[in-house]
């Protein structure tokens, strides 16, 4: 069963070393592309893990012939990093506030947060679009960054992990005279490292793969992130997609591996309410 999982990953990696012609040969529908005698029979897709002829042709095309790839990569970063930053800061702050604030409306607001968080983005799409239009930020990066940055999801995750912080520690600090700010930075944050890690990982992965929002809010081709390009190339150019995907996946994989430890710790903590 694990095979189902490894194979796609490996195929992407190794197939990126195949030349275009070879990919067509393996996956195309008709034999007649290469062998006229067999014309008319259906050709079924064959998976190949090891290229018949390893070639760097795809990478060549990707990196040198279409240099815009680098711009797209940067675009993806320029969108993802601000969003992750905003979500972390605002989310952690808000989660702390929810934890220590005592007010009747608190639960109502939190409930509203959950509702917004859970909605498919299409439901809030027109709201975001109207707002972005009214604020005049359509077609700029802000129109994607701002709504995502304020996403209630970050608050939810951080609050789950902060719930696990024993109140006694906070109260002790309060008695010692520490104000909110100090308590936040020195106690709450370090104790919710797991939550922070999982938030950053999930947020990064999510934003990195974001496709619909940039397509709708960013009309300028120069602003579009890599994920949109990958979704657009389509079947015609699978080899190129494979090579691009390898690069596309690198940052996310790196973050996953790096943060996995913290991530799991965080889940353990948040699971024990």
């Amino acid at each position: 069963m694990a095979a189902i999982y490894i194979i796609p990953l490996l195929i992407i990696f190794t197939n990126s070393f195949m030349s275009q012609g070879e990919i067509v040969r393996h996956y195309s529908a008709d034999y007649d592309v290469f062998d006229y005698a067999l014309k008319g029979q259906t050709h079924y897709a064959e998976y190949r893990l090891i290229p018949d002829l390893a070639s760097l042709e795809q990478y060549n095309t990707l990196l040198f012939k279409t240099p815009m790839y680098l711009d797209l990569f940067l675009n993806s970063l320029k969108l993802t990093l601000p969003i992750v930053f905003m979500q972390t800061v605002i989310g952690a702050a808000a989660a702390y506030g929810f934890t220590v604030w005592k007010f009747r409306l608190k639960e109502v607001i939190f409930c509203a947060y959950i509702v917004v968080m859970v909605l498919p983005f299409q439901a809030t799409l027109v709201s975001n679009y109207i707002m972005a239009d009214a604020l005049g930020i359509l077609n700029t990066r802000l129109s994607v960054i701002l709504p995502m940055g304020f996403s209630p999801f970050s608050v939810f995750i951080m609050r789950q992990s902060m719930k696990g912080i024993p109140k006694s520690i906070l109260e002790a600090a309060q008695i010692d005279g520490a104000n909110h700010f100090q308590r936040f930075i020195h106690i709450a944050l370090p104790l919710s490292k797991g939550g922070l890690a999982s938030l950053m990982i999930l947020s990064f992965a999510d934003c990195w793969a974001m496709v619909e929002q940039p397509m709708i809010f960013l009309k300028d081709a120069s602003l579009e992130p890599l994920s949109v390009l990958l979704s657009r190339i389509g079947q015609g150019n699978m080899g190129l997609i494979f090579a691009a995907s390898v690069f596309y996946m690198l940052p996310v994989v790196w973050i996953f591996l790096y943060g996995q430890e913290h991530f799991e710790q965080g889940i353990k903590l948040s699971a024990l309410r």
């Binding site: 808000a94 917004v116 975001n128 707002m131």
Partner: peptide, 18 residues
Amino acid sequence: LAFLFIAPSVLGAALFFI
């Protein structure tokens, strides 16, 4: 003070969603 912590999040969410 605690409200200040929540404020950016609430305002932002309100502005862009609610």
